[in-house]
């Protein structure tokens, strides 16, 4: 037995150890990464949305209620103090949020986040590029966000958002509205053009990610903003549906890009894996 522990055995043991040691480089002296979790909230004038009650009043003077909000966030970045972008979620880069599905209101990013101080967050409202190709999502609930090819072309695969509810119309009838955003279709002198209505949103807010800790960001959609600034969005003008109305979608998108989101709070959740 002692003979077995000879030089050959030593070689067997040493080779993997040396391989492990040689793989170490200065990079590994960096602090351990942290992780990031985003909790989504939907606010109306700074308060959590109360669904299914005709209790809201928009800038156009419409009384309205909200039934459900379903939307995509994608292409998330952390922004450093130098303005550099740290791309996140390369493997899971689009997240679906549905006020009917509690589990979608939290997004635990799969990435290891470099520990450090950041100046803000950037993301895409909606989907762009290959993520918005027809058939990109095959499973529900994401697949149920499909935006017909007849309305958005090959590169208009999915709704960016469905915001469904009711408003009191001019006859004071409670009437459904579907504030749906996605790729717009514009016919111009016999030519069909598709308008990508997604937008990037940047939230400036100091964010600290510590080693082996989870930073939790509460990101809010400010629902009233879709309807008020800079464009007064009137349900009595645009009606119940706007998927085939690029003018209405453009007005809504411009509003949403101007205050539609905010970081409500940032906290440190717990130690990673401990």
């Amino acid at each position: 037995m002692r003979q077995l522990l000879s030089k050959h055995t030593l070689i067997f043991l040493l080779v993997p150890i040396l391989a492990l040691v040689s793989s170490c480089d200065p990079e590994e002296s960096k602090p351990a990464p942290g992780s990031l979790e985003i909790n989504f909230n939907h606010l109306e004038n700074n308060d959590e949305v109360v669904f299914d009650e005709m209790r809201y009043h928009n800038a156009a003077g419409n009384n309205y209620e909200i039934t459900e909000i379903q939307w995509f966030i994608s292409d998330l970045y952390l922004i450093t103090g130098d303005g550099e972008r740290v791309a996140l979620s390369e493997e899971d880069f689009a997240h679906y949020i549905d006020t009917n599905i509690e589990s979608t209101l939290t997004w635990q990013l799969p990435d290891d986040i470099p520990a450090g101080n950041y100046a803000g967050l950037a993301f895409t409202f909606g989907l762009k590029g290959e993520k918005n190709l027809q058939g990109y999502f095959t499973d529900a609930p994401e697949a149920n966000m499909a935006w017909p090819i007849t309305l958005g072309g090959q590169n208009g695969g999915y709704h960016y958002m469905k915001l469904n509810g009711f408003w009191m119309n001019e006859q004071q009838q409670r009437t459904p509205f579907n504030f749906h955003l996605g790729v717009g279709k514009v016919e111009d002198a016999g030519t069909t053009n598709f308008v990508q209505n997604w937008f990037e949103y940047i939230v400036s807010s100091p964010i600290t990610v510590r080693s082996n800790r989870t930073t939790s960001i509460e990101l809010a959609m400010n629902v009233e903003e879709w309807f008020q600034n800079p464009n007064i969005y009137d349900h009595n003008v645009h009606g119940a549906m706007i998927m085939q109305n690029q003018e209405a979608m453009a007005a809504g998108v411009e509003n949403g890009a101007n205050g539609g989101f905010s970081v409500v709070s940032i906290s440190e959740k717990n130690e990673n894996n401990q």
């Binding site: 039934t67 459900e68 509810g165 119309n169 009838q173 009437t175 459904p176 509205f177 119940a240």
Partner: peptide, 8 residues
């Protein structure tokens, strides 16, 4: 359901 937007 509000998706029945032509109900009126």
């Amino acid at each position: 359901h509000p998706l029945m937007k032509n109900v009126r």
